[in-house]
Computed example of a mutant assay.
Amino acid sequence: MQATWYFDFISPFAYMQWRRVRALAQHRVQFVFRPILFAGLLQKHGQKGPAEIAGKREFTYRFVQWQARRDGIGLRFPPAHPFNPIAALRLCVACGSSIESIDAIFRWIWHDGHAGDTIDALRPVARQLGIADAEAAVADPEVRQTLMRNFDAALRDGIYGVPSVVCREQVFWGNDATAMFEEFLDDPALFDDPEMRRIARLPEGVRREP
């Protein structure tokens, strides 16, 4: 089975899902890993992120911490959030968006609680990944173009949030949808029963004006 995983290092939910995605990639699913800028999706769809809404920000952080503890995932928030993830995204692309680079960057930011908003902050990770000149690596025009192509691919695939898995034209959004994706792997006809087809065509009863 082939699938694409869209993610941004700014997302703690992507960090928590990564453990299961990585396991599936090693044994069951041929993944294409595509880092993208979550803020670009928010702008494209006219949305605010949960960390940009008073009250929701605090609840989301508490929920993340609670969920990580429940699932036995080591997690420590970085010094500030939200943060600018561009340097981390570009470093990942410079390393070929490999499992090793994704793992190292997520661990640095979300397991160890370090800043990931500048290439200077990420220098230890870059060295660990064999990148001697981190500034040159993230400034490479091809790295920047790849990140833009990833974003364009996300829009074509109908992505509206991270993390998201796309498999057989189906989008599975969020860490909470991981189990749903795993069931889809076992049963590709998961959405073919009458009720699933009915709700896919459900008309809007009212639309809120912007």
Rank of each mutant, 00 (worst) to 15 (best):
N150F: 09
P124W: 08
P79A: 09
V93Y: 00
L91N: 07
C95K: 02
D140I: 09
A80N: 04
D117N: 11
A80E: 09
V125I: 11
A115F: 09
A137F: 00
G113H: 08
N84P: 01
L147I: 05
I159Q: 01
D133G: 08
T118I: 13
A104S: 15
S101P: 12
A80Y: 02
F83G: 04
R107E: 15
P82Y: 03
N150G: 05
R156N: 12
L155D: 01
F151D: 00
L122N: 06
R123F: 09
D157I: 07
A136Q: 14
L147N: 02
A121Q: 13
D71Q: 14
L75E: 03
Q128M: 13
P141Q: 10
D152C: 07
I99Y: 02
G74S: 12
T146G: 03
R156W: 01
D157W: 03
A126E: 02
D103Q: 15
G130D: 10
N150D: 03
D103T: 14
I105C: 11
H114E: 13
E135C: 02
R156P: 00
H81N: 04
Q145L: 13
T146Q: 14
A80W: 00
I73H: 05
P141N: 10
P79V: 13
A139I: 06
Q128C: 10
R107A: 15
A154L: 09
I105F: 13
V125L: 12
G74F: 02
G113M: 06
